[in-house]
Design a protein around this nucleic acid. Structure first.
Length: 489
RNA sequence: GGCGCAUUCGUCUAGCGGCCCAGGACGCCGCCCUCUCAAGGCGGAGAUCAGGGGUUCGAAUCCCCUAUGCGCUACCA
């Protein structure tokens, strides 16, 4: 039984390279999903590399949280800062000498140069270019500095960056697995900063050096990186390295079709938020897999293992997709229904104030009513807390309050006479007969009267189930309490 | 502004020249089941395949143009 791509390719080494700057992002799980699947379907490895090169935005807690979030969605890396690996260290901040050496190699080869321009000068230059409606690009002021002056300013310890020297002409193109050939004119490329003045590399240098050194064969990343890819391709060429395979995935979108953002979609960006609200990681993953990709057989519900089996980057779509919370919630309900009572009870523990025993007891009647794990306590409250009656709920078209009280009293007496436990068929027949005797136009109205009396709500699991779960004494006591309200009102 | 990428029901998508006056899923509506709410079952509304030109006997599918959207344009990733 193997209807799917027996990969006829060497093992893939893929990576997710988040920057630890805050809340673990849904995009990280989205990208990881594809990279994880490709690596594992080819017998390769999936690695996590921390791109902590921005000292300004760095957040010390972020790494731990990213790792926990990936663990939660079952996308643990095979190599990374926590579990190590043959290409450690996996934090870029611990690889500074490597980037330094590579930057110097580029300078020596004439593919990069030192730049001493101040932020002020660059800002002024950009402003002027903008005013003249020209594309903002570095004017290469420092490219022509005499070598002796460069040397002198270097020894003086002046602040400087290293810039990449872009070719003046020609075209840089690369093949993208999902979009085909993409080309950029070299003369339009800016002389990118490779090494910042604080000694840290920029993304462009670090990603190329590390992907190569770590043996990454397949780069799967978001579409927002397409524009920078020519710079990366040029770097590979300067270093004389073999290019990885590129696959740029579609973007996750806000409702207004802009790139998904915390500001516009606060409920969709934080991975921890999904966990807090009671989404199952397998449902989130399944949902994410269906954004920008579809199962070859049209299946909507499938496991991570199944996804690994059939995933192919070539089936990735080109257009971005809006994250539809409605469908995710539906899918979560599907996954909840797939779980056994015992499994579900275990999963509910972090979301409930009740004991595992209590959860297991009432779960059978709540199972089909749950969409989010966090909804459990609200649904279960009828079993654990005495109802606070809203007299408006008792209102009936047919009877006034005193009449309802009489009916309820009769029903209460009838229940008290029944041998416990109340047997379903007999109980239901009894209620219907009582409804008829007491002149109810619809038997359903008596059921509703009892429902409100016993649960304090107009919606609940089937009444008989509910009463059995509550027990004889509690059920009768609640009827008495309801009677009090009805007579007082 | 420049460059790049994209464009099938409200949303996620199937489709890779004839099987499509476009199929599925979520949502919505109705019906069934039913003591309520769910779950489940059945059915319905919903897309002139962004627009316009080609190519072809035949185009959602290939080519060109236009429009629109998005992305990038930092010593952020």
């Amino acid at each position: 039984m193997d209807p799917t791509p027996t990969p006829t390719r060497p093992p893939a080494r893929t990576r997710i390279a988040p920057s630890p700057t805050g809340d673990p992002h849904v995009g990280t799980a989205y990208q990881s999903l594809f990279s994880y699947a490709l690596a594992h379907q080819t017998g390769g490895r999936f690695l996590l590399r921390l791109e902590d090169t921005d000292q300004v935005r760095f957040d010390a807690n972020s790494e731990r949280r990213i790792f926990a979030a990936l663990a939660w969605v079952h996308l643990l890396p095979d190599e990374g800062p926590e579990q190590g690996g043959p290409y450690a260290p996996y934090r870029q901040s611990e690889r500074l000498p490597i980037y330094q050496a590579h930057a110097e190699q580029l300078i020596a080869a004439g593919h990069a140069y030192y730049c001493f321009c101040t932020p002020e000068r660059l800002a002024a230059m950009r402003k002027e270019q903008e005013a003249r409606k020209q594309p903002p690009r570095y004017d290469r002021h420092c490219l022509t500095l005499p070598p002796t002056e460069v040397q002198a300013r270097l020894t003086a310890g002046e602040r400087r960056v290293v810039r990449m020297l872009m070719p003046d002409e020609g075209v840089t193109s690369f093949h993208d697995v999902v979009r085909g050939e993409i080309s950029f004119e070299n003369r339009l490329l800016d002389d990118q900063v490779l090494m910042k003045s604080d000694g840290f590399p920029t993304y462009h240098l670090a990603v190329v050096v590390d992907d190569h050194l770590m043996g990454v064969t397949d780069v799967i990343r978001g579409e927002e990186w397409i524009s920078s890819t020519p710079k990366h391709v040029l770097l590979y060429r300067y270093f004389g390295w073999e290019l990885p395979t590129y696959a740029h995935t579609p973007l996750l979108l806000n409702d207004d079709r802009s790139k998904i953002s915390k500001r516009k979609s606060p409920d969709k960006t934080r991975l921890e938020g999904f966990r807090e609200r009671g989404f199952l990681p397998e449902a989130l993953l399944n949902f994410l897999a269906l954004l920008g990709w579809s199962h070859p057989d049209g299946q909507e519900l499938f496991s991570l293992d199944e996804f690994i089996r059939v995933f192919s980057p070539a089936r990735l779509l080109k257009a971005g997709s809006v994250f539809d919370m409605n469908k995710l919630i539906w899918m979560n309900g599907q996954y909840i229904r797939l779980l056994t009572v015992d499994e579900l009870a275990m999963r509910l523990i972090p979301y409930t104030t009740h004991t595992a025993e209590e959860v297991r007891r009432v779960l059978p009647v709540l199972h089909d009513r749950l969409r989010l794990l966090s909804e459990f306590d609200d649904l279960a409250v009828i079993f654990f807390t005495e109802p606070v009656y809203d007299s408006a709920l008792f209102s009936s078209k047919q009877f006034d309050a005193p009449a309802l009280a009489d009916h309820l009293a009769a029903a209460r007496a009838w229940h008290a006479d029944q041998p416990w436990p109340w047997e379903k068929e007999a109980w239901e027949a009894g209620i219907r007969q009582l409804a008829e005797e007491r002149g109810f136009k619809k038997a359903g109205d008596l059921f509703m009267l009892l429902r409100v009396a016993v649960t304090g709500r107009k919606e609940s699991p089937p009444l008989h189930d509910t009463m059995l779960l509550l027990g004889r004494e509690a059920t009768l006591a609640r009827m008495d309490a309801a009677l009090g309200v009805l007579r007082g009102a």
